[in-house]
Design a protein around this nucleic acid. Structure first.
Lengths: 350, 350
DNA sequence: GTGAAAGCGCTAACAG
DNA sequence: CTGTTAGCGCTTTCAC
């Protein structure tokens, strides 16, 4: 079961070990016939170079470390998936590390990864607020995805939450809604504030102020969606659309609407955020939602990292567009038929 | 930023390179004073041995490959998390590979992992049905987790779906339910059949047959939960408990019950499967559910792999107990207060 | 054109 | 007790 080494190939081809190496790597000046003979031997023996030996010599391992603080939660998963995909295309293998949000574990992982001579690091998270930088001076490129480093100009890739809020607002306006409320997560979440900003910007520009009570900050839970909606309907019974900061909130809102006899979308349109499959499809009716295209975020981060490894370091925060996925819950009143998917932000699928 | 090598340490301590190696690894006969001097030098220089060099020599890399066919979905994630945790404790690093259920990608990943000389492989999936073996003769240990290989005696670790069904049944009987229905996923899913088996076994032994219509196989969706429940209530209006094969089905069932005016748990008890956090906590009332303890599954797989790498290969399928998490949706009728968590299957938390 | 030799960082025999 | 030597598998000068 032992793998063939270059020595075996050389012997088989009747050349020296150095010649075999050159032949296999297309280096130096060799007779075409010799190259062919070596290639043939390699093929026959199923030879593949040992990356460990190559790495030892080259000081480059073609591996990267992926660190998540998020136990591969709902947000970091797609990011890592996209990143892994993009890196795999570049022949890089990925060490996965789950810090469980423990700085000590993180320290140990970073230590281990640098010891293993990874070519770079991707750090992902579940929240976009700045976090302590990982290095600070690592000696290798670091890219943050779905999180960013405080006091650092290391590159970060984030979803465009403002744009997501804008897209939702534009869609609601376009479908004739005018009394639009916003129920979202805790105000201390940057993402919640950015989505609210996007919404109010667009509504403001259209001369349609956010409905009474302004933005309802609370929690990311279904329960909060139910509570806030009940409260909202008391204060502003003429509300005709609710944009929710998460799909879970939207689920709760939908339940509360049903309890008060409101029909979705006929009486009130409902939009969620995250486009989280089990939530949006499980909803009745299926839920319109903003997709953050997290795989794209991961892919972009991977591309930045590959560029940085190649010597072209990026800097600062880069943002990836969101995409509005329209389903029945936001059909224009009296017009329940809707094309199943509409995208905003110019992206194809993501 | 270059790391210190053993050569630097040796020079700093004024000994030869070989002596330094021995001192650092506690080999051979050395004067304690020399050992100390070398250790001190290593500490000062922040020396850490280069794993690549060690691996090249030892033929052992202290890395393992983790392959998922599931794009790190809801089921494989916790499995991988548990495995990564257990492996990390043994100082093994993990290469992560997402095959996206594409055999060609899988082939390439396996090729790459063996080229990188991983010490072993963990293969995870989303379904417990047997899949084509990965090898077949790999030369390195392979353990399957949350999936198993057809025509192979390579070890596999699976959740105890039968036991999960039993636990649900016992709980329902203990809380006084007697007209118990079961709504679950497609019959072609082994997991669905095993859960049903566990339920019917226990009910049969207690002389309480499954309610009219037997087991309702369908889909894993909320929609099916709604449909099946509506149908069930027509045929067997005196049903007093529904055990669902997934939390999503249970969500749908809950919605349907609410529509017909049934109260949960007073009129009908509801139990789900998966203990999927956003689903069970978002439910109103919170949903009793069977937890497959997938992290334990992953951990067990990692332990088996470490044992196999150490020369003590396991064989065949090993099963990890499920755990019933009791919440309000299954309180005994007329007794809505319940201890928040009760476990079945003997496990502590998982 | 091709081979011999040096060396990446480390460990394990063997001398001394 | 400690130093020297010989590699692990590969690439890369440098002679011939």
């Amino acid at each position: 079961m032992k793998r063939a080494t270059i020595r075996d190939v050389a012997a088989d081809a009747g050349v020296s070990i150095g010649t075999a190496s050159k032949a296999l790597n297309g280096q130096g000046r060799l007779r075409p016939e010799t190259r062919e003979r070596v290639a043939e031997a390699a093929r026959r023996l199923g030879f593949a170079p040992n990356p460990l030996a190559q790495a030892l010599l080259a000081g480059r391992t073609y591996t990267v470390g992926m660190i998540t603080t998020d136990s591969f939660g709902r947000f970091s998963i797609p990011v890592m998936l996209g990143a892994e995909d993009a890196l795999g295309a570049g022949q890089m293998s990925v060490f996965m590390c789950d810090t469980r949000d423990d700085p000590e574990r993180e320290r140990r992982y970073v230590e281990m990864l640098t010891a293993r001579r990874v070519d770079g690091l991707i750090v992902t998270g579940r929240r976009i607020e700045p976090r302590p930088a990982i290095g600070p001076r690592m000696g290798i490129p670091v890219v943050y995805a779905m999180t960013q480093a405080a006091d650092s100009d290391e590159p970060a890739v984030l979803p465009d939450d403002v744009g997501g809020g804008q897209a939702a607002a534009q869609h609601l306006l376009a479908t004739g809604r005018r009394r639009i409320a916003h129920i979202t997560g805790p105000e201390r979440f940057l993402a919640a504030r950015k989505r609210a900003t996007g919404l109010t910007e667009v509504l403001g520009a259209a001369g349609v102020p956010v409905a009474d009570g302004g933005v309802l900050y609370g929690e990311w839970s279904e329960r909060w969606g139910r509570e806030a909606t009940a409260r909202l309907l008391e204060q502003a019974p003429d509300t005709d659309a609710i944009f929710c900061g998460s799909d879970q909130i939207a689920r709760g809102a939908g339940d509360a609407l049903r309890l008060t006899g409101r029909r979705v979308p006929d009486d009130i349109a409902l939009i969620g955020f995250d486009n989280w499959d089990p939530m949006v499809r499980g909803s009745d009716p299926p839920l319109t939602s903003v997709d953050m295209c997290l795989e794209d975020v991961g892919r972009a981060a991977a591309e930045d990292l590959l560029a940085a490894i190649g010597g072209e370091a990026a800097h600062g925060v880069r943002t990836v567009p969101c995409r509005l996925v329209v389903r029945e819950s936001s059909a224009a009143a009296g017009q329940p038929e809707v094309a199943p998917v509409v995208s905003a932000g110019g992206g194809a699928d993501c």
